[in-house]
Amino acid sequence: MPEAGQKKVSIRIDGELVQLPASHTILQAAAMAGRFIPTLCHFDGLADAGACRLCVVEVSGVARLLPACTTPVQEGMSVVTDSPKLAAYRRMILELLLAERNHVCAVCVSNGHCELQNLAAQLGVASVRYPYRYPKLPVDLSHPRFVLDQNRCILCSRCVRVCASVEGAHVWNVMSRGIHSMVVADLNDPWGDASSCTGCGKCVNACPTGALSEKGQAVEEMMKNTAQLVTIAMRKAVRA
């Protein structure tokens, strides 16, 4: 985290002037300006992966779109957080995610508390124009307390990062590549057999969807304790 007294820069977010330390990102600047930028892979206190690409924004003078989560602010920068093009792209990204795996909200433990579901509603995704892939994916019930349902995973890697940088256990990683990518515990072991797992549950609370959940929860019952985890992660990040 930036230290106090660090050099500040002035930038404009959708025209509004914001002053903040140079090490901050556009995403942080937008939060200060009260502007909403959608994200799925970002998690306060964790290093950003830049994976979901929902947070791309327009920066004047830059031909390319830039991800708000990993782009540091620069003096004089002028950022547009929403535009017809950005909105269209963001909807396309959400539709791609919904088509990729089996997000059957109606029977999901996270129904009603899911970041993907909520964002889709917020960004106006009422149907998916791409063909659903309907892949056959496993559900890992081997852990005594938790469930990993690959059908709901969006590969945001929040579990991977929280486990590595906050808990320090490095249980999770992503195996294979491309469309075959899959979150695995240890060396693709059943989660229950993963000797590195401390059972802390941080991954479950970091997970934006119903991919990681606690056992015994029925449809709509799985509520993640995100706020507490953010506090822990931020503290850890300050110390690091």
Partner: peptide, 19 residues
Amino acid sequence: VALGDCAVTGNVPAMRNSI
């Protein structure tokens, strides 16, 4: 009008699709 998740997404009936 596609009314409801089954008509819009396939939903529960589509859970058989990988078989």
